[in-house]
Design a protein around this nucleic acid. Structure first.
Length: 668
DNA sequence: GAGGTCCCTG
DNA sequence: CAGGGACCTC
């Protein structure tokens, strides 16, 4: 495409860079928004401009350049690369102006130089120009490709330019402002634009200062490294390409443009540069300064972009975006907190000046609305339980997790919603569990799709916890303050009044007449295993008060725990050996968390319904056990037939007290 | 010998 | 998980 003008580029290098510079600065980013035709169009324009200038066909006055009016008819045929087109292209704007620049040849050569100067001035003014005209003008580009091409052409004639991405943002943000550059939006918009403009101007001033210093250094080195410009540009562009953000394109273009500016300025400011050279006598210093300036320059550009973006994000874009979010809150992963915050944002949206970029704040901040406000705003009963769960389970960790994953992780202080209790009371009934163990009977229907799968008694227990045993087991799960302890049904009995009394009677009626052990007893025994691995007969008698103990029953209970231990130790040995096979060298690597496979295996065995919050102490004991096995096996002690006995001896000392709740006769 | 545990088997 | 035998401790 450059072939037509390859031969005569050199003379007007400075000017020729100007259109390129402008495109890179403002127009090229547009291509990233999908319009390839604009690229080719602009490239053609570059060639045409070159030719027009080289041939000194005419002088394009500043006033003409600043004009945004142009006959569409002259733009329709821009696609063809011909001198004729270029003439028409430049002639048209002029012909529409009062001074009516002549198309051909009657322009003296001195005017050419004047034109150069005017264009340079235009560029400089363009950097400090108001974004308004561009904002409005560019918004038209989205209409159609043809329209965009025209508009791009038109833009090419304008002085005022704003970084493309910025305009793009405003485009998306304020479609209502689309229209001619002269049309004004609301007064607040203008204010915003004005502020933006000022900000941009200040940044541009800074940029120019840096640029000048940059040029000094570059020109100082110029004599030694003639080809440095190319590599410098390439490296700069390469550097910026590594930035994956949307800004990178802009920054890249800015840098490229600055490089070109530097070239241009080399031509324009040679005198000044020569003077400057005399001050830069030390190459090394110059290099350092160069690097510093490069850094400063890119930083300034980056900051400028950030500031503009920040500013823009606080204007129409976010008004619209968060309003959209407000209207479709379900599109977001919302807890009720967020929903309520939407309500707050909606309130705020009525004000004309959102102070912060709310689209961002929407996700980051939870402050704007107080919990009281949330409650007030959310009158739906359905949501309230969710709200209370989210806000009270782990106030500091705002992680809404499904209830059915950890049904017992409730805060003691959590007020249980009446409808929730009622729902479960109706669903399961008090008899379901009150007559049995604190845990859910195997036969219990737990397949309810309802998120609250825990038995009603467990729910009821949440609201009131007695808890002497809390002092015994202060450590709780990391997920919630409720320990396994609160799970036990006895809480209900002790604190739930009539209903609990009913359950108690039921319990006695159903269990006291039984002489044998029931599945509920077995389940209770398994849960007790989390606290004690070696319960004495007395302990068993204490915690199974509803069992008529005889030798057989005692033996059976003891046998149960023996079996529990067996499984426990088998698992420990298995995992310890596996760890050794896997190359674990240090016993410190043998830890057990609730995510551990070993824990899951144990939990599956002793807490199959997973409706019991395993006490942290059990994890500790299990970890110690595992480490004991690990040490014994890794030191080949397992060659001794009775090598496990030493381990048993250690573990049996780690028993904890079983929570008093297990003693309750209503438990069994 | 009673009580308890471990180990094996089904 | 139960049954049963071997073994240990008191």
């Amino acid at each position: 495409m450059h072939n037509p003008s390859d031969g005569d580029v050199e003379d007007d290098k400075a000017e020729l860079m100007i259109p390129c510079f402008r495109r890179n600065m403002y127009d090229e980013p547009l291509t990233s928004y999908s319009n390839g035709s604009i690229i080719s169009h602009l490239l053609r324009k570059t060639v045409q401009n070159k030719r027009a200038l080289d041939e000194s066909h005419f002088y394009l006055p500043t006033s003409a350049v600043s004009s945004s009016t142009m006959a569409d008819s002259s733009q329709e045929d821009q696609s063809s690369v011909s001198s004729k087109d270029s003439v028409a292209e430049f002639a048209s704007p002029g012909s529409h102006l009062s001074n009516g620049a002549s198309p051909e040849g009657d322009r003296p050569l001195s005017d050419h130089l004047q034109a150069k100067r005017a264009r340079v001035e235009n560029i400089i003014r363009g950097m400090a120009g108001s974004p308004n005209s561009r904002l409005h003008g560019d918004s038209e580009r989205a209409v159609s490709d043809t329209r965009e091409a025209r508009e791009a052409y038109r833009e090419n004639k304008r002085k005022q330019r704003l970084p493309q991405h910025q305009e793009h943002s405003l485009n998306a943000a304020a479609p209502a402002n689309r229209g001619s550059s002269s049309s004004s939006g609301s007064s607040s918009k203008d204010e915003e634009c004005h502020k933006l403009k000022e900000q941009l101007q200040s940044m541009q001033r800074l940029l120019r200062q840096l640029q000048e210093k940059f040029l000094q250094v570059y020109n100082q080195e110029d004599t030694e490294h003639e080809d440095r410009d190319g590599t410098g540009t390439a490296s700069t562009a390469k550097h910026d390409d590594t930035t994956p953000s949307k800004e990178s394109g802009f920054r890249k273009n800015m840098d490229e443009e600055l490089e070109r500016k530097h070239d241009r300025a080399k031509g324009d400011c040679k005198d000044r540069v020569k003077k400057d050279r005399s001050f830069l006598t030390h190459q090394k210093e110059g290099k350092n300064l160069q690097e510093t300036l490069k850094h400063e320059l890119s930083k300034a550009v980056s900051e400028s972009v950030d500031m503009v973006f920040k500013k823009l994000s606080s204007t129409g874009l976010n008004q619209l975006s968060y309003q959209r979010m407000c209207h479709t809150p379900e599109n977001i992963d919302v807890g009720v907190e967020r929903k309520s915050q939407v309500a707050c944002n909606q309130e705020q949206s009525h004000t004309e000046e959102p102070v912060k970029p709310q689209a961002l704040e929407y996700y980051e901040s939870t402050e704007p609305c107080s919990p009281e406000d949330q409650t007030e705003a959310l009158s739906l009963v359905v949501r309230k339980p969710l709200l209370s769960q989210l806000s009270s389970v782990t106030p500091t960790v705002k992680r809404p997790y499904p209830l059915h994953h950890s049904p017992f992780q409730f805060n003691y202080s959590t007020p249980l919603h009446d409808s929730q209790i009622l729902e479960h009371l109706l669903k399961y009934g008090p008899h379901t569990n009150f007559g049995g163990l604190p845990c859910v009977p195997p036969s219990m229907d737990r397949t309810s799709p309802d998120s609250v799968e825990l038995p009603w008694d467990a729910i009821a227990m949440r609201s009131k916890v007695t808890s002497s045993h809390l002092t015994h087991h202060p450590r709780t799960s990391g997920l919630g303050p409720v320990t396994v302890d609160s799970l036990c049904l006895p809480h209900v009995k002790m604190e739930c009044g009539d209903m609990q009394s009913l359950a108690e009677r039921n319990s006695y009626m159903s269990l006291n007449i039984q002489e044998g052990l029931t599945p509920n007893h077995l389940k209770k025994a398994k849960l007790m295993f989390f606290y004690t691995r070696y319960p004495s007969s007395n302990v068993l008698k204490t915690f199974f008060p509803d069992v008529k103990f005889n030798r057989c029953i005692t033996s059976q209970l003891i046998k149960w725990f023996s079996n529990f231990r067996e499984f426990y130790y088998i698992q420990m040995e298995k995992f310890a050996r596996q760890a050794i096979v896997d190359g674990v060298n240090d016993v410190k690597g043998m830890s057990i968390s609730r995510d551990s496979e070993l824990f899951r295996a144990l939990n599956m065995h002793y807490n199959k319904a997973n409706d019991f919050q395993v006490p942290e102490r059990f994890l500790e004991v299990a970890e110690i056990t595992l480490q004991e096995f690990f040490n014994a096996i890794s030191t080949a002690k397992d060659s001794d037939p009775s090598w496990k006995k030493a381990i048993y001896k250690v573990i049996c000392k780690l028993d904890s007290d079983v929570p008093d709740e297990f003693k309750s006769s209503t438990c069994l």
